[in-house]
Structure formats: structure tokens, C-alpha cells
Design a protein around this nucleic acid. Sequence first.
DNA 1: ATGGCGCATGGAATGCGA
Length: 252
Amino acid sequence: MKIATWNVNSLKVRLPHVLDWLAVQQPDALCLQELKLEDKAFPAAELEQAGYRAVFLGQKTYNGVAILSRIAAEDVTLNIPGFEDDQKRLIAATIGDVRVICGYFPNGQAVGSDKFAYKLRWLDALTTWLQGEIARHPKLVLAGDYNIAPEDRDAHPDWKDEIHVSEPERAAFRALLQLGLSDAFRLFEHPEKSFSWWDYRMMAFRRNFGLRIDHLLVSPALREHCRSCEVDKAPRKLERPSDHAPVVLELD
DNA sequence: ATGGCGCATGGAATGCGA
């Protein structure tokens, strides 16, 4: 089974890249973030044509998440239960026997800002809800754009902002690990400076000035089934790319 | 020292992302 996550930064603009990528990679499930479109504008027909069904939670201009899958998704959850939120940042569904959770974690803008406080509250609510979710679904993947680089090696050494690498954010990430989840990427060897996001400016991609902020965390029952986890940099090299690259997890 | 790109909205300039 192949499960991937990709922040597409507008599904409308990126649809051709997504369709091409699905044809090449043929994942069983693809988690998408930053759709930036309303539900009525979701390109369900085009994806159906490509052999994928979708469950989605859209929003005008900002946010928006979806899970694409070859087989039908079941038991769909929209946003974090028990957490009042106008922003559409989470969708969960069961694909076969795997619980797939797709999250677009808040950016946080700057340490100490209101948006930063919201980011930490959102993470806290997620962690609380996940306790029960993991108990209900032993095979679980938490995939998405976390907007957190968990360790120093996950950020370019010249990264100058505190946001994404601050201690409170990293503590929140570790709290997710403490639920028993494992960072699938770190189950395997990778080159130094492996990232999943690069700024559009400053020729950041060419200089590999990036962050690893897109993650797939797996439950104990899935950990032993992980066969590979890789960032696919190919779509980042295309014309008009998303600033994020997809991350692909293979399970046996 | 600053902003540098891309997207959305709306139909120019601004907010936001990371």
C-alpha cells in the first residue's frame, strides 16, 4: 500500500500536476492540503476520470484538505471533533484497514503571535483527539503539512525565523510521538538536508534552502510494515510548482 | 536592511504563506 501527502497550494492551479503525478506514482491514498477552493469547485470528475475517489473539506481562498483513494473512503471525520474551528484543516477516513488522517497544521506566522497561539491550541486539540482515534484504529497514519521541522537537521542551517523550529512547536511534535507514533521518514536512511518545502523566492529550491515540514507519522501496528518513505522532488522542478513536494510512504 | 514569489480576491492593492 502506498500513502502520500502533498500540500498543493491551490488544487485549481495544480490539478494538472496532481493528475500526472497520480498516473506515475499510483498511490492507494493521497492526502492533499491547501486546496484553496470551495467544495462546489472541487474537481471530483477529473479525479474520477483518473481512477480516484475523494473526500474533501474545502474553504474559499485558504486551507482545505482532501483524501484521494482508489477504493472508497469510509467513516469520514471533518475537522477535529470537539475543537471549535472555522478553518478547514483536517479530514480523516478509513481506507481499507488503515485510518488515514490528513492535516494542514496552522502556520503560526511568528512565535508569540495570535496565530502562533492558535497553532499550539490546534496541536493540543489534535493530540487529545488522537488518543482515542489510535485506540479505535490500530493501523493509523497521520499525514500532512505539519508546519514544524522537528529537529535541527530538518531545517536549512541558514533558516533565520523561529517559526517552524521553535521549542513549543517541537514539543508539540514530540507529544504526537509520545502517543506511540513514529516519523516514517526517520525509519530509513536519507541524505543530509532532505527537505519537503522550499521558498519560491531566493532560488531556494536550487540552493536547497528548505525545511522538512511534511510528515507521515505511523502507529505501532504500521511501523513494522513501512518499506520506504521518500520525498519526491520531481514535481517541484516543474513549471508553476507547489512550494511543497509530495512525501510517499510505502507499506507492505 | 529589505524583499525577493505565488495564489486569491477582485478587477488594484493587499493578505497570507513558510
